[in-house]
Nucleic acid binder design. Structure first.
Lengths: 132, 132
DNA sequence: GTTCGTGCAAATCATTTGCAGATAG
DNA sequence: CTATCTGCAAATGATTTGCACGAAC
């Protein structure tokens, strides 16, 4: 899988650097989503935060990284797997994935209003079992 | 309606000031959601941005203003009406409301994982008819 | 009068940009 | 060798905080 991503980079005329391999490694081994700060720490400060931002931006543009927004002022990033959503615990901020999605009917109703190219973001907030 | 909000302020031991009335007026007359910058402009710079932030924070705590996040780095605020979602045009950034919500089943499946106090944010992004 | 609200300046935090040297193809 | 990368420093933009004065109760 990581090989495919490296190929996508090459195809786009971008370089396959040690830095980008390290980043992809972390993303592939821990599904996340990760903040830039977490990635910085996971990589033990060996990459500049700026470099992390820039690499993630490239990965996102190539479509294999997705940015998630939980409204707390900090973006989170994960490898773009099958479409899914998240639940974040309001207490410990741990994030779990939710793979069901029943929003197709929703998008239909928006399409009827004349919109095209519809996408959505959906995040849940709750208190997890541990934190009750 | 605005009267109810003013009463909520009093009940919370907060003051009913000219400033807060002006803000509520704008919020009540234009459903929004509004950025702080838009509110600042609508009020012709007569309120400091800081004051707008602080008042909105109070209103949000009292529960009659809701913060929406479209992932563009700028919070938006609206009077908390019945539960609903939004579609934002990716081109003109105009926001329209979507009143259907079919997520109860979704929340059930999260409840089964042991979570409580579940809420969600759901925003749609699309290209509106005007912008095709 | 006491408490809360407001404006101004300054701080903070996430993120972006500019630039010169380092590295991949 | 040439284009892309990277780190560092500095800029940006949204939001928050500290403080002294002014307005509500």
């Amino acid at each position: 899988m990581e090989q495919d991503f490296l190929q996508l980079l090459r195809d786009a005329g971008l370089h396959v650097t040690k830095t980008r391999r390290m980043l992809l490694d972390v993303l592939a081994h821990d599904h996340g989503p990760h903040t830039v700060e977490q990635l910085f720490i996971d990589l033990q400060g060996s990459l500049d935060r700026v470099t992390i931002y820039r690499s993630l931006a490239s990965f996102e543009k190539l479509g294999f990284v997705r940015r998630c927004d939980f409204g707390d002022g900090t973006a989170r990033f994960e490898l773009a797997m099958t479409h899914h959503h998240h639940v974040m615990c309001r207490v410990c901020h741990r994030v779990e994935s939710v793979h069901e999605c029943v929003l197709d009917g929703f998008e239909d109703s928006i399409r009827k209003k004349g919109y095209t190219d519809i996408t959505h973001t959906l995040e849940f907030f709750a208190i997890c079992a541990r934190c009750q």
